[in-house]
């Protein structure tokens, strides 16, 4: 399986380290139901049979986190973009900033 790293070009998957589902966003730790939200974020997965957005880290390359869209039934890779670009496209990173708990 080959991953089209946006920075390095197409590389074999074994150069990468896989993390998993890229859709959950880190919840607001200051939310009153933070523990429920973090439980969901850390543990629950849609685990789709089909298109899957996922994090791959180009450990033996540019060390960039890459968001890859890959089909879990066919392993076909539909596209990839750098994490920073993916977050920009998502339009906000606000939900991921720890609240000021002081």
């Amino acid at each position: 399986m080959r991953i089209p790293c946006p920075y390095c070009g197409e590389r074999d998957a074994h150069e990468f380290s896989y993390l998993g589902d890229a859709t959950p966003a880190r919840p607001d730790p200051a939310a009153p139901d933070a523990q429920d939200r973090f439980f969901d974020y850390v543990y629950l997965r849609d685990n789709p049979a089909g298109a899957h957005q996922e994090w791959w880290y180009h450990a033996y390359g540019c060390r960039q986190w890459v968001q890859v869209e890959r089909n879990t039934l066919t392993h076909a890779v539909a596209g990839a973009r750098l994490a920073r670009d993916a977050r920009d496209a998502a339009g906000d990173a606000a939900g991921n900033v720890p609240g000021d708990a002081s």
Binding site: L19, Y57, A59, W65, L82, V97
Partner: peptide, 18 residues
């Protein structure tokens, strides 16, 4: 060593790119 480095990059690139 590698795990922590990867973790820090995750924090910087994915969690808090700002």
């Amino acid at each position: 060593a590698a795990k922590v480095y990867q973790h820090l990059e995750f924090c910087l690139q994915v969690l808090w790119p700002d």
